[in-house]
Write a protein that binds this DNA or RNA. Structure first.
Lengths: 330, 330
DNA sequence: CTGAAAGCGCTAACAA
DNA sequence: TTGTTAGCGCTTTCAG
């Protein structure tokens, strides 16, 4: 910047003001300085600027993977969400600092906040870190979380109505005459737990007795989900439908069913969750619960920037939508 | 840091050295200081550190989308690659600065480099920005690019042998008795252009005359690829196979073919490129050319860090692999 | 409208 | 082994 000042024949302060678009500088001067900067490939150093201003112009996007043994970003859900978030953040002139938290250690979130690397944080999924998020939420405002709404939640959460999603999926299966419906997913995760509650409510309303053998824990990767589906079938429990907590799990289940000579949907109907891009292209195409990630990302970033500006908006609950395709046999 | 110094009863320099793991500080002192820092939730400010050290501890991951009208990260290829890169970068203790360059303006890359926000850059795909990359490559070393190897390339490129990939795909179709093979993809992009060359070589070797009607430009999104496939069919050119430049394009073609009452693979065989996760799950499952993105990411980051340390390794050419599934009718 | 100068939080040369 | 101090590149108060 000193160089640019010298070349422009003005002081450093003037260059700083000009490049920052201060109204104190006449347009002509500003133009002149901007051009010299451009010609010399000069760009304001964001570290010096950040140090001085205590603003980084970065938004942190965080993917906590406490619940995944494989610790790899594999579910297309994350990636679709990330794409939409990237659009929203870029549009506002901020950069994206992407953090994958593979094995969350105590204090990981506080560290991230204290490091002041970002002006705000978007957490994609609560994973098993609700208490860490809650602790942070009580003193750090600039954070929004994609996930379930929970009682006594101190942080701003945006998510689909998971209970209703689970209910819609299961009711759809019941309306098609299915009675022995299995649930496949990790109910320890808040969002999945709520989807399971919806599943159970639909069963209860239809007078279907709870069968613990049909309640099968499963992680999110294709391999682990396939194993879970195999275990479910090995258990010998009769079933005529599966409600899977994600599309990837649904897909893995369909493949496992086929390996065992079951037809989908004739023998076993399957419903997934997410409506990720693959859902329309599987064989058979997947009936699923849609979460509008485009809208979700817009909501998350809108709320985050409101918070950065000092407001404290509450979270938002989005409506899930049943998308009927072939896998449920409708 | 001043606070921590006061609480520890030592000087700021000692705290700085202790927290940086300097061997000058005895273990006991280091421990003591580290504990006080931890208890007070103190983390070194990376902006001040970066300003002083001229090192950011950030790696920029850049997705140029000059070739895409929709400007959205949509192809699963990007997202799978990003996941692997994230793993490799995180493991080395660096943060990821993610930039989507929606509509590349002249100077975008120079700006990114001059801003000194990152210690190195990984560019995912050349898009239509080869000349910008080449200009940067001649003076900026800390950059690696996923993409095609091109003559007179000043930058470090890692990519699969695209020509060979195209050749393998097409030869596979020819060996199955197909003669009227269409190519679907945007040959203006270097990688795709090379895949097309491989396609043309295989045809030539088999004595198949070039038919321009079977040479169909297509972008990468599902919608645009579907349109391209529709145009291809509307042209009235007879065909018994399609080699698509990506799995997404292949998938869109299959759907278009089905809409027109064509059976895959009986009437038209289809081969894709990438072997993305969806490929195994489409209907029918997709024969495709595999790029090992796990290995690719490791290679990219290894080379990048060698460059950051002052070496100047050349790029790398990876082997493509034909994965035979149902869509080619083998 | 413009400039001089202080200081953001840190590291490292230099001195002790 | 530790402390003092200069300065990284910027913004902004204060003084013209």
């Amino acid at each position: 910047m000193a160089d640019i000042a010298r070349m422009s024949g003005v002081s450093i302060s003037t260059v700083s003001r000009a490049l920052a678009g201060s109204p104190l500088i006449p347009d002509a001067t500003r133009e002149m300085i901007a051009e010299i900067a451009r010609d010399n490939g000069y760009v304001v150093n964001p570290f010096a600027r950040g140090l001085r201003l205590k603003r980084t112009q970065n938004i942190g996007v965080v993917i906590p993977l406490g619940h995944e043994k494989r610790q790899l970003i594999s579910d297309p859900f994350f990636l679709e969400m990330l794409g939409h978030l990237a659009d929203e953040i870029t549009v506002r002139g901020y950069e994206i600092l992407l953090s994958k938290i593979a094995a969350p250690k105590p204090g990981w979130l506080e560290n991230l906040i204290q490091s002041q690397r970002t002006d705000g944080l978007v957490i994609i999924g609560q994973s098993d870190q609700h208490s860490a998020l809650n602790a942070a939420g009580s003193h750090y405002e600039n954070m929004v979380v994609w996930g379930a709404h929970l009682p006594d939640q101190t942080y701003c959460a945006v998510g689909v109505n998971n209970e209703l999603g689970g209910y819609l999926a299961t009711k759809h299966l019941i309306s098609l005459g299915r009675r022995r419906i299995a649930f496949l997913g990790d109910a320890d995760l808040p969002e999945i737990g709520q989807r399971r509650q919806g599943y159970q409510r639909a069963c209860r309303e239809a007078g279907i007795a709870y069968d613990p053998r049909l309640d099968a824990p499963s992680e999110f990767t294709e391999e682990t989900a396939a194993q879970a589906a195999e275990r479910l079938m090995a258990s010998g429990a009769e079933m005529d439908a599966i409600f899977a907590a994600s599309d990837v799990i649904a897909l893995a289940s369909i493949n496992a069913l086929k390996r065992h000579g079951k037809r989908v949907p004739e023998d076993v109907a399957v419903v997934g969750f997410d409506d990720s891009t693959i859902a329309a292209h599987t064989n058979p195409p997947l009936t699923t619960i849609r979460q509008d990630l485009n809208k979700a990302a817009r909501l998350l970033i809108d709320l985050l920037f409101q918070r950065i500006e000092g407001d404290e908006p509450k979270g938002a609950l989005m409506e899930p939508e049943l998308i009927v395709r072939k896998s449920s046999g409708a």
